[in-house]
C-alpha cells in the first residue's frame, strides 16, 4: 500500500559524525506524500540531529537527501525553508518580546515579495501583503485557539506553554509548506496539554490536506494516536520501521527503551 504512494523526501546513507561519535549512521528514510510519520527513539538516539541535518543546520558528513526530486544536501537552512520544508523546535524558538502576530508573520517570509524600496516607498504593496498574511494568521489562530486573536499585538512572553507551541505551529504552517517537521511538540507539557496538542495536530491535518508531517516524539500516546507510520532510531541507526503496532512490539525497540534484561525476561 505504502509503496504506491509518491515519495516526496528520501535520504541516501546519511551520516553525521561529531569527532569520533556517530550521531547518525547509514540513515535511509523515505517520506511519502501526505502521511504523518512518527520518529521515536531514546534520548541521544539522533532524532533531533536528523532534523537538524535535513533542515540544513548541520551539514552531513556523508550521504545525501532529496526533496521533491531535488538534491538539497549542503544547502543553507534558509534555502531549504524556501523549498517548502518548515519546522518547529524542541525548545520553543519564538522571539518572546515580539508579538504573536510578528511571530506568525515571520513564517510567511519565504513567500513574501516586498523589499527595501517597497517598505519605504510602496507602502500599498507591503500593507496589502501584510494584510493578506494577517488574515491567514487569524484564520489559523481561530482553528487552534480563538482567544489568541484578541492578543495579536501582545508579546508571546505572556502566553502559557501550550499557546506558545500553537503559535510556533502556526508559524510553521502559514507559508503553506509541503513538509512540516515537528520536533517533540509535547516536550514540557502535562497530560492535559498533551491531549490538546494531539487534537491540534489533527487540526493541522484537516486544515492542510496536502501537507506531509514528520513528528519526533517521546510520548508514546501522541505517536500512537497521530502517526500512520513510525520509524525507530537508536544510536543513530534505524532499528525498526512500520506501523505503531509493529514497531512497538519490535524486540530491538523494547530493548532500546527498557534495556536488554527486561526485553529478554
Amino acid at each position: 500500500m505504502a509503496e504506491e504512494k509518491k515519495v516526496i523526501f528520501y535520504t541516501e546513507d546519511i551520516e553525521m559524525r561529531f569527532g569520533g561519535l556517530y550521531a547518525l549512521k547509514n540513515i535511509n528514510i523515505k517520506i511519502y506524500e501526505n502521511e504523518i510519520l512518527g520518529m521515536i527513539g531514546p534520548n541521544g538516539s539522533g532524532k533531533t540531529t536528523f532534523f537538524n541535518v535535513i533542515t540544513g543546520f548541520y551539514k552531513p558528513t556523508k550521504g545525501r537527501f532529496y526533496f521533491m526530486g531535488e538534491d538539497l544536501t549542503g544547502k543553507e537552512p534558509y534555502e531549504i525553508t524556501r523549498k517548502g520544508i518548515s519546522r518547529t523546535y524542541q525548545i520553543s524558538r519564538l522571539c518572546l518580546d515580539l508579538t504573536i502576530l510578528d511571530n506568525i508573520l515571520i513564517g510567511t517570509y519565504p513567500v513574501q515579495k516586498s523589499g527595501y524600496s517597497d517598505a519605504i516607498f510602496n507602502r500599498k504593496k507591503l500593507i496589502k501583503e501584510v494584510k493578506k498574511h494577517t488574515e491567514r494568521a487569524v484564520h489559523l489562530l481561530n482553528i487552534f485557539n480563538p482567544d489568541l486573536i484578541e492578543k495579536l499585538f501582545v508579546p508571546v512572553r505572556s502566553l502559557p506553554h501550550i499557546d506558545r507551541r500553537r503559535v510556533e505551529i502556526c508559524r510553521a504552517m502559514i507559508a503553506e509548506p509541503k513538509l512540516i517537521l515537528l520536533d517533540e511538540p509535547s516536550a514540557g507539557m502535562n497530560a492535559d496539554e498533551t491531549k490538546e496538542l494531539m487534537d491540534d495536530i489533527e487540526k493541522v491535518r484537516k486544515e492542510m490536506e496536502n501537507v506531509t508531517i514528520m513528528i519526533i516524539e517521546h510520548d508514546m500516546k501522541v505517536i500512537s494516536s497521530v502517526s500512520e507510520r513510525v520509524i525507530a532510531l537508536n544510536f543513530g541507526q534505524v532499528i525498526a520501521e512500520g506501523t505503531y503496532e509493529e514497531v512497538s512490539h519490535n524486540k530491538e525497540v523494547i530493548e532500546a527503551y527498557l534495556g536488554k534484561e527486561v526485553a529478554n525476561g
Partner: peptide, 26 residues
Amino acid sequence: RLFNSWIGLTSAYIRDDEPAAKGCGI
C-alpha cells in the same frame, strides 16, 4: 517605515534568535 515592515521584523528575529531566523527562510 523600515521598522514597520518585513525588514524590521526579520531584523528583530535575527537579533533575538538567529537559528530561528534561519529556519524561517531568512
